[in-house]
Amino acid sequence: MRIAKDDQVAGYPAIKIRNYLRPITDIYIGAMGSVENVEDELGISNSDARALVKQLLAEGYIEIAHMNGLFKLTAKGKRFSLATARKPIKKKTADNLLSDFIKRVEHANSQGTFAYTIEKVIVFGSYLDDEVNRINDLDIAVDLVHKGNSVEDRLRIDQERIISAIKNKRIFSSSLEQLTWPYIEVVRHLKNGSRSISLHTTDDRIFAMPQTRSRTIYVRT
């Protein structure tokens, strides 16, 4: 999905709303939004934030997820949060991105230092359309499985990864980032800073939609 710089959503610049919604869909944080959060992040008054949330609810971008007013993205909101204002990339470029991605998957699994293994990689979306010469993003879904066999094992492995990051001078932006770092680091390794890769999990609602074409390109052996 592409958006233009002058597009608007609920009376606000579309890119500004997309940038706010994007972290809510993050595969390693799974955060939820709130009126107060909208107010702080967009720098608007409480009344304006409430009006914006109401409009986003009415237009189907978000849905209430908790009694205290927290909201999460709908499938429509998820698609919008992943929209890009960048120019499309060539299929050949996407081919190279995918090839390099699989190399990083194999490296991560063979290295054995991450808290998660990548069990499966699935490509989906417009990349699979042979008649399309350019695509907005390379959509990839991954099945990440924690190496710990018990709660105690998972906590121990996670703590080891966090301690390792701290020793390597990693500065966490929040306690939430530190807590989820074992997941974050493998995701960042896989994306390798590419803004043209849209990374999802295999249980993502967009990926699971019946009309979504997909192809499994890697299974860990």
Rank of each mutant, 00 (worst) to 15 (best):
H200D: 02
S175F: 12
W181E: 04
L179T: 05
V186Q: 08
F172N: 01
L190S: 06
L176G: 05
V186H: 09
R170T: 13
K169A: 06
I197Q: 08
S174R: 08
R195C: 04
L199R: 01
R195N: 11
L176Q: 13
K169G: 00
I197C: 10
E185L: 06
R195V: 09
E185G: 10
H189I: 05
K169F: 08
K169I: 01
S198D: 14
W181A: 04
Q178S: 13
I197L: 13
H189Y: 11
E185Y: 07
S174D: 11
S194R: 00
L176F: 13
R188W: 03
V186I: 15
H200S: 05
H189N: 10
T180A: 14
V187G: 04
S198E: 10
I184R: 12
E177L: 03
L190D: 07
Y183F: 15
N168P: 04
N168D: 15
N192W: 02
Y183A: 15
V187W: 03
L199T: 02
I171M: 09
N168M: 09
R170N: 07
L176S: 06
K191T: 09
K169N: 15
V186S: 08
L199W: 00
R188N: 15
H200Y: 14
L190F: 04
N168K: 13
L176Y: 12
R188K: 12
F172T: 03
R170Y: 13
S174M: 10
K191G: 02
S198V: 01
I197M: 10
I197N: 06
L199M: 01
S196Q: 08
E185N: 07
K191W: 00
P182A: 11
I184A: 14
G193P: 14
I171D: 13
K169L: 06
L190Y: 06
S194H: 00
L199H: 01
H200L: 04
P182M: 08
W181F: 15
F172Y: 02
S173M: 13
I184G: 06
S196C: 03
R195H: 10
S196I: 00
N168G: 04
N192E: 03
H189L: 12
E177A: 11
E185M: 06
P182H: 07
V186C: 08
Q178C: 12
P182F: 06
S175T: 13
K169V: 03
R195W: 03
L199P: 00
L190M: 07
V186E: 08
R195Q: 11
R188C: 04
N192T: 00
L176W: 05
P182V: 09
I197R: 11
H189V: 05
L190N: 07
V186P: 07
S194A: 01
Y183G: 13
E185S: 08
R195M: 05
H200P: 03
E177D: 10
Y183N: 14
F172E: 02
V186Y: 10
S174N: 10
S174V: 12
L179P: 00
I184T: 11
G193N: 10
S174L: 12
T180H: 10
H189C: 10
L190G: 05
I197A: 08
S196H: 07
W181M: 02
L179R: 15
S175H: 11
S173Y: 09
L176K: 10
R188M: 02
I184E: 11
Q178E: 15
G193T: 09
L190V: 05
R170P: 04
R188E: 15
E177H: 12
H200M: 02
F172V: 03
L199F: 00
